Amino acid sequence: MARVVWHVPVTASGTGSTTALRLFRLRDGRRCAVGFSSPEALVALLGPDQAHAELGEPALRDLTAPLGIDTLVLDPRLVAPSVTAPPATPLTPTLTAPAPTAPAPTARLQRR
């Protein structure tokens, strides 16, 4: 049986001595781990500068379980925030004159 390998995005520390799994969020806000079936699929979505590691699904589940993450997404097609409704107010600003304000009282120091 062939070994199935997921290509998972990782981040490296500034010195390069530590590597951490890069986690994402689903549209409902829950955290998830993402994997790709090929390095080309990873590069197509996350760009050529995204570092990655090769892991099997059981290893990825073992890494994410202590963090409370039980959702794995293979080959996501869209990584974006959820779409929000357009604003109810018009986008063109209305000009109004500022309301007149009373001058602020000045404080005076008293000598003792």
Rank of each mutant, 00 (worst) to 15 (best):
R30C: 06
Q50D: 05
R31H: 14
S38Q: 05
L21F: 00
P9D: 03
G14K: 08
E57F: 05
R27K: 11
R77V: 14
P81V: 04
P81G: 07
R22Q: 15
G16N: 02
A104V: 15
A85P: 08
T15G: 11
S38T: 14
L23Q: 06
L46D: 05
T89N: 13
P76G: 04
T11L: 13
R108A: 13
E54I: 09
S17T: 09
H52M: 10
A80D: 07
V73H: 03
L95F: 10
E54W: 15
R77C: 09
V34L: 04
G56Q: 15
T64C: 14
L72S: 03
C32N: 02
L21Q: 01
Q110E: 15
V8E: 01
R108W: 12
G16K: 01
L78W: 08
S82W: 07
D49F: 12
G29V: 02
P58Y: 01
R61H: 05
E57R: 05
G14D: 09
L91G: 13
P9M: 01
P9N: 01
A107F: 15
T11C: 11
D75Q: 03
T89S: 13
P86H: 00
T96P: 12
A44Y: 04
L42H: 04
Q50K: 07
V83D: 05
T64Y: 00
A2M: 12
W6G: 13
P105T: 07
S37H: 04
D62V: 06
T92D: 14
V83P: 07
L63Q: 10
E54N: 14
A85Y: 05
S82F: 12
V34Y: 01
A53P: 13
L78E: 11
T19D: 04
R25M: 08
D28R: 01
L95S: 09
S37C: 05
M1T: 13
T106D: 12
A33Q: 03
D70H: 14
G47C: 04
A12I: 10
A65T: 11
T64G: 03
L26Q: 10
Q50V: 08
T101N: 06
D49W: 14
L74H: 07
P87D: 15
V8D: 04
A12H: 10
S17R: 09
P76W: 01
R30H: 08
A33D: 03
V5K: 09
L46H: 04
S82T: 12
A41W: 06
E57A: 04
G14I: 05
D49K: 15
L23W: 02
P86A: 02
V73Q: 06
V83G: 04
L78S: 11
L63F: 07
A20Y: 11
A20G: 08
L60M: 02
S82G: 15
P103L: 01
A88D: 14
W6Y: 13
A102P: 14
S13L: 00
G16H: 02
L74A: 09
